[in-house]
Amino acid sequence: MNSIREQIIQKLLIGLAEIRQASGYNTECGANVQRVRQIFDPGELPAIDVWPHPDEAAKEYGNTVLIMPVRISGLALFESENPSVVSERILADLIEAMTGITWTLPFSSGGPYVIQIGDIIEGDDSEASGFVAGVQVTSGSWETEDAAGTLTLRRVRGRFLPSETLSVGTESNVCAAAGAMTGTEARERIFGTLVERIDYESGGTDDYPESGEIAVGAAALFNITYRITAGDPYSQP
């Protein structure tokens, strides 16, 4: 039987595996998520390394509130790119995966333009916008202009109206919103009900590669707050 803390760590490893370009992130670091690794071979990169730190505790009646600091490091080969640019992409992915909100927006009347991951979709009436991180077509097709399904959005600005037409850049009326959008915080998406909050404390790159080195990394520190029943690390109140 795993403690609540161990359950949280295991869910974190699974959640970080979503950091892939196919899910709209900038890097492929989620392809190899490890726990407390000191050294990675170049052939193992890109990768993520998770280091849980000791809890801080505060007692309340009948339960204990715990804050677990977790240092998450992303590593990647920078090849011909500026290593600072690559490290900033890694950091942005870590912050978004751990603290961002994922939105689901139902759509209909899609086509003939095929909405792609990476598109910025805009509401023609609301002027809301969002980064397309996923597209699921459940009926119809783009070719016949009756595709329907759901869009997974991140980095949403404003709020889409339930039935407005949507555009992508110069492509107008690519589909219509078919209902209200709903959002899920990273805390709930990754941990379900185990965790109360996630706070980003700090992040960046301490040391850039020296001559002859081929990889760069960025690390971020997050504080994860959760509860356990007083004296019982295996249950929550």
Results as ranks from 00 to 15, higher is better:
Ala230Glu: 01
Val70Met: 10
Ser87Gln: 05
Asn26Gly: 13
Gly231Tyr: 12
Glu88Val: 13
Ile95Asn: 13
Ile14Leu: 11
Ala176Lys: 01
Ala58Asp: 04
Ala218Asp: 03
Leu66Ile: 07
Val132Gly: 02
Glu145Asn: 12
Ala218Trp: 14
Ile121Gly: 01
Ser129Tyr: 02
Phe78Tyr: 06
Glu6Asp: 14
Arg157Cys: 06
Ile39Cys: 00
Val135Asp: 10
Thr144Pro: 02
Glu196Lys: 11
Ala177Gly: 13
Gln7Thr: 06
Phe40Asn: 00
Lys11Val: 15
Thr225Asp: 15
Arg89Asn: 02
Tyr208Cys: 07
Gln34Val: 15
Ile39Ala: 15
Ile117Phe: 14
Ile67Phe: 07
Ser3Glu: 05
Thr152Glu: 15
Ile117Asp: 09
Ala17Glu: 02
Glu171Ala: 10
Gly111Glu: 09
Glu96Gln: 12
Ser87Trp: 02
Glu213Arg: 06
Asn173Phe: 03
Ser163Gly: 15
Pro209Ala: 05
Val174Gly: 11
Asn82Glu: 01
Gly43Glu: 08
Leu166Tyr: 11
Val174Phe: 01
Ser211Thr: 12
Tyr61Leu: 11
Asn63Asp: 14
Glu210Thr: 13
Val50Gly: 06
Asn173Val: 01
Thr64Asp: 08
Glu79Pro: 15
Ile224Lys: 00
Ile39Met: 03
Gly62Asp: 06
Thr170Asp: 03
Leu77Asn: 11
Phe107Asn: 00
Phe107Pro: 14
Glu56Ile: 11
Gly24Lys: 12
Ser73Pro: 03
Thr99His: 02
Gly118His: 04
Ile72Trp: 06
Leu221Arg: 01
Thr205Ser: 03
Arg89Trp: 08
Val216Tyr: 00
Leu66Cys: 13
Gly110Lys: 03
Val70Phe: 07
Thr193Cys: 00
Gln236Met: 13
Arg187Gln: 12
Asp232Met: 06
Thr144Val: 14
Ile101Met: 05
Thr229Ile: 07
Gly43Tyr: 02
Ala186Glu: 09
Arg154Thr: 12
Ser109Asp: 08
Met98Asp: 06
Ala147Asp: 10
Ala47Val: 00
Ala47Lys: 01
Tyr113Ile: 12
Thr99Asp: 01
Ala186Gln: 10
Ala97His: 10
Ser84Ala: 05
Glu60Arg: 05
Glu185Pro: 03
Pro237Leu: 13
Ser80Met: 14
Thr64Gln: 12
Arg89Ile: 06
Asp125Leu: 05
Glu18Thr: 15
Phe78Glu: 15
Ala92Ser: 06
Arg35Ser: 12
Lys59Leu: 09
Thr150Glu: 10
Arg37Pro: 07
Pro233Val: 04
Gly110Gln: 02
Ile4Met: 08
Ser139Phe: 04
Gly24Phe: 12
Ser108Gln: 15
Leu77Glu: 12
Trp51Met: 09
